[in-house]
Design a protein around this nucleic acid. Structure first.
Length: 117
DNA sequence: ATTCTGACA
DNA sequence: TGTCAGAA
């Protein structure tokens, strides 16, 4: 299938599909005319990648994760569990940062409110 | 009409 | 990531 068809089938823009390929997340054949030719089975893989990006993972992390997700459960090593645990930790740290920022802003706002009255 | 690459008021 | 250009 061509890139436009894959885009329609997966809901991922052609721009993103080319980006995925640039970063080695997906592969494609080329027609004599130079057009990308994807296997229709690529649809689910692309959707998976989209979800991982939405979770804030980097393309390099996704690249490490994909082999694990596609390998049969028996062959899955602990790297997947380790990577995911690491991402969870990263997001929790980010949340703590945001909470800190909220505290300082709320404190500043209450001070400001008092002086304006 | 569709895709390709490269670039960004 | 969108989008536009210029070419195929």
């Amino acid at each position: 299938m061509r890139i436009g068809e894959l885009a329609d089938a997966s809901g991922v823009s052609t721009r993103s599909l080319r980006y995925y390929e640039e970063h080695g997340l997906i592969r494609s054949e080329r027609t004599p005319g130079g057009w990308r030719d994807f296997d229709s089975a690529m649809v689910e893989r692309v959707v998976m990648i989209q979800h991982l990006f939405a979770a804030g993972l980097s393309s390099s992390t996704i690249n490490e994760l994909l082999p694990c997700l596609e390998a049969p459960p028996e062959e899955r090593t602990g790297v997947m569990e380790q990577l995911l645990a690491q991402e969870v930790e990263r997001l929790e740290a980010k949340r703590r940062d945001i909470d800190r920022e909220l505290d300082t802003l709320r404190a500043l706002r209450s001070e400001t409110a008092l002086s304006v009255k």
